[in-house]
Design a protein around this nucleic acid. Structure first.
Lengths: 229, 229
DNA sequence: GTCTATACACAGATAGAC
DNA sequence: GTCTATCTGTGTATAGAC
């Protein structure tokens, strides 16, 4: 699959997060008109991402958020009861959307090789589409409450387990080599994460996501595919 | 090389950073007795690392630092003129020590294969030895002033360039395949970084640094070494 | 629904006693 | 050299006008 095709098949944007937040937090949000809420949530999340990536969420003040989002401080507090709440909701709703997409797309393939390729591509494409969110999520996870932090960690581990299972399955079917699949999954995950953690660097090198996907797949395959002797 | 041997050959610890800070900042530090300064700098840096890793440097207050380090607020300010200064000095002096070690150790090998292996091992071992510092440095780089941030980025790129040059050299000598070495260096770097960014995870999996080094070397070699046909 | 003005708390930094 | 007490600025959150 190419990134362009991927974009046509999924709905993953900040607007989708906003809609999900609106539906899930109707009671807590003091404003009731859907159109207004969506519009303003988007402003708030956009501003949070922008400032948060630049100097970190802790360093972001409500005054910063007011200035960048265009909403007044008072208005901000009619959407979220506290600054922490913005972070909590933004990250947890984002994770929800991401898993909806991942679960659906990866299960399509059956052959282990194709499945691995699909997992790698879907991950990269998704992190490309929402790269700011992923970067922010990674950097700010430590600012969450212990229970929310646990959710974030579990989500990470789930990704890794998903890859590991494909690898184990491939070995059982005799197409992949025998090795420490858990460790291999970690390393593959590290390569996937680098795409959104160092996005600026790859942009400077003029590497597009399709190219990165192809490269790391060839890297992984050279290790995992049994050599014809 | 094994990690144990590495430990015998180098001096890289928080104490070395403290000594370097004492020598470099004699004028700014109000306290003059070396023994006292070293003792207290170590307390300050230890506490900074501990709190900083837990909740981020921005979120750390001088009161936190007082409580964990055992020094009073006043005492803290006789070592550093501001909170930001603690971060700046700690990170830049750390980088200084790291590059002293890297430059020295990697140049020893001549054969590209051995050189690559040495670069991978030395990086991993160094980040193992100072893993908290590396994690902290990675997470807090964005809180530095623009010029200091630039230094941090340059240091990162330098590591990558170092790997890339080994790869290019290996291809010229006909032992490595032809590929996008810049991209490969990025991906290898991502694997190296994962070791200190996800240290807790690897500890849980019971993976030691020697084992990790061996695994990613086999991964890299399967891609880079020309296959005998 | 959105704004401004403000209460209240707490941070960083300093001064001066010991 | 180290401490405690305190100044001053700024941040979060709220109340109440529009």
């Amino acid at each position: 699959m190419k990134y362009k095709e991927f974009l046509d098949t999924i709905a993953a944007s900040r607007l989708d997060i906003c809609r999900s937040v609106f539906l899930g937090y109707r009671d807590e949000i003091k404003i009731k008109k859907e159109k207004t809420v969506l519009k303003n949530l988007e402003k708030i999340f956009d501003a949070t991402l922008k400032i948060g990536i630049e100097k970190g969420f802790q360093a972001m003040t409500m005054l910063d958020l007011k200035n960048v989002s265009g909403l007044s401080i008072g208005a901000l507090y009619s959407y979220f009861s506290s600054k922490e709440e913005i972070l909590r909701v933004f990250l947890s709703e984002g994770r929800k959307i991401i898993w909806q997409i991942l679960d659906e797309l990866i299960e399509k393939e059956k052959d282990p090789g194709a499945k691995l390729e699909s997992a790698v591509e879907v991950h990269l494409f998704l992190t490309e589409r929402m790269h700011k969110w992923f970067y922010f999520s990674y950097m700010e996870a430590k600012n969450l409450s212990p229970s929310e932090k646990e959710n974030a960690v579990q989500s990470e581990l789930h990704t890794e387990k998903l890859i590991e299972n494909i690898l184990i399955d491939g070995q059982k079917q005799g197409v992949f080599i025998e090795t420490d699949h858990s460790l291999a999954a970690s390393v593959i995950k590290a390569m996937l994460q680098d795409w959104y953690l160092k996005r600026g660097k790859y942009a400077k090198k003029n590497i597009a996501v399709d190219q990165y996907a192809e490269f790391i797949m060839s890297f992984i395959k050279s290790f995992y595919l049994k050599r014809q002797i």
